[in-house]
Design a protein around this nucleic acid. Structure first.
Lengths: 301, 301
DNA sequence: GGTCTCTGTTCCAGATTATGCAACAATATT
DNA sequence: AATATTGTTGCATAATCTGGAACAGAGACC
């Protein structure tokens, strides 16, 4: 395996017509250049240069090798430029994994707007509540809500999501309205079965209150729980983006407003270390801005 | 200036799918490979691979860089050939893809002998049952047994391999010895699950007899099937090179000798047209002679 | 002819880098 | 739970690289 430094030294010697000039060109001593070319000749088993004390002349083999290697060096530079320019360019393909309900309700418009702003970028969105292996499945990034699952991933906080306790007016008419969190244990609670926690958290002054919900209905999807609440089955804890409209139109009522629930952070996750590609940084910036304004909207409810 | 060693390490990592495999291929430790690729990424300022503890996946940039650099490495090899008159010389590097069990059991000694005869030649042997793309993965040639898969490759027949029906003496003592091929259906057959055929072929006079073997044990590797036969699990069809020793020492008995199975041809494949490089022609000559004499040996069993 | 300048080569000692082993954490498999 | 495999990193040793200096050969100039 020839060393590229040997090849470069040789090519420069032929181009400049001498070892000393090549050395000056490359900012090295002439002894290094002499040695590199000699090593290249030894590796190849071919004499590339005829030497006199007054200079050099390439052999026929040397001329051919120089021609080919100058092109190879050029191709290598093009390869380097291709990958470094790409990283600085908002182009190519961006593969994203996003949560199901959040992806449809909140992210689709955000990413559509981003895509419109960056027409040279293709976006491949995979919508799933399943935890994907970003590396093995070839994703550039994932958007995740709540607890971060894997510390080997690089994360950037995009904003927050607020959970509300809600029930239908008909349910409340029949069962009464809970006046404080502890009263929930006397109610039919609609339970999210994919959560990392089996308690509902409320802030009470400086403290956090944990309530273990009881109920006969469980589901691992927020939209299903919303549907259950809308048909009067019970009290649910649901993210803002799933209940904003129903609260606005009166189909659901927000409860226990004096006991706020914790916000869940929205994060952009990506594999590995080092600098993020430009297209990911741009997406992150765009989403921070998007959720920044949307987050304020939710807080006003 | 990227180092060619770094580039080569990276290209091999992508081709083999991992650092450890690339290290084995290049005969270096995995720590060197890890560091060379990391240095290449640092030099370029671009992440080329996403890493987990279980493996790697090239980034988009990584894929592009690999594609370009594989070509650059090839051009460099062509430059070398051009000046060393390699076409007429048995020197340089010969990259070969060979089947797993056959490569280990039969080819290694043949190629070791060839290498001894040609000390200026380096040999890079890749042992795999996977079908490789000779051109894309930079192989000079492949050795294949049986059906030829791709007519765009140039092939040269080196010899043949004979399959035998075998079982252990203990299995036969317990279950009896089949007197003709049809009796195999009453036996426990050990089935090769990676074959292109689910029948066993026997010559009966001028005709071919197909028997569909029945059995509870399947494997996609000949050595596994041999091991199963040695522990009395049943009757297997195995190539000569895997059972010669066991037949010679009585651990396995050859059955149904009067109904020969078809020979499988051994071929040397290489890409493209034109004249073969001298080193490939020499290898082919050497292997023809090697299998010629070995083929006779098998026929005597 | 003598001197100077330029060329490429090789020696030498110090600086720098490469190497493989081992340990480690993470993950998958049995 | 134990084992195997993956890729990363620390460490000590070995190997290689580097530039300056010395050298020989050649040409230009006075």
């Amino acid at each position: 395996m020839q060393s590229l430094e040997d090849v470069l030294a040789f090519v420069r010697v032929v181009e400049t017509g001498g070892f000393s000039r090549a050395a000056a060109r490359l900012g090295l001593s002439k002894s290094i250049i002499s040695r590199r070319v000699a090593r290249l000749e030894a590796d190849l088993g071919v004499r590339l240069l005829n030497r006199t004390t007054r200079g050099i002349a390439p052999t026929e083999a040397g001329l051919e090798f120089k021609t080919r290697c100058a092109e190879i060096l050029r191709q290598l530079e093009l390869a380097r430029e291709a990958v470094t320019c790409r990283e600085k360019d908002i182009a190519g393909t961006l593969r994203l994994s996003v949560p199901l309900s959040f992806g449809i309700a909140r992210l689709a418009p955000a990413i559509a707007a981003f895509s419109e702003k960056n027409p040279r970028l293709s976006i491949d969105l995979s919508v799933s509540d399943r935890f994907v292996d970003l590396v093995a499945e070839g994703f550039d990034a994932a958007i995740r809500i709540g607890v971060l699952p894997d510390t080997s991933l690089m994360s950037r906080r995009l904003g927050a999501m607020q959970a509300f306790v809600v029930a239908s007016p008909a349910y409340l008419a029949r069962h009464g309205t809970p006046e404080k969190p502890q009263a929930l244990t006397q109610h039919e609670c609609l339970i999210y079965s994919a959560g990392s926690r089996d308690t509902w958290q409320f802030r009470s002054g400086r403290k956090w209150l944990s309530i273990r919900p009881q109920g006969r209905f469980r589901a691992d999807n927020g939209e299903v729980l919303r549907a259950a609440a809308l048909v009067d089955l019970g009290i649910a804890v649901l993210p803002d983006f799933l209940v904003e409209d129903a609260i606005a139109n009166g189909a659901l009522v927000r409860l226990l407003g004096a006991w706020p629930m914790p916000e869940a952070s929205i994060h952009l996750l990506r594999p590995g270390g080092g600098a993020a590609p430009a297209r990911l940084t741009a997406l992150g910036d765009h989403l921070v801005e998007w959720f920044g304004s949307s987050g304020e909207t939710a807080a006003k409810l």
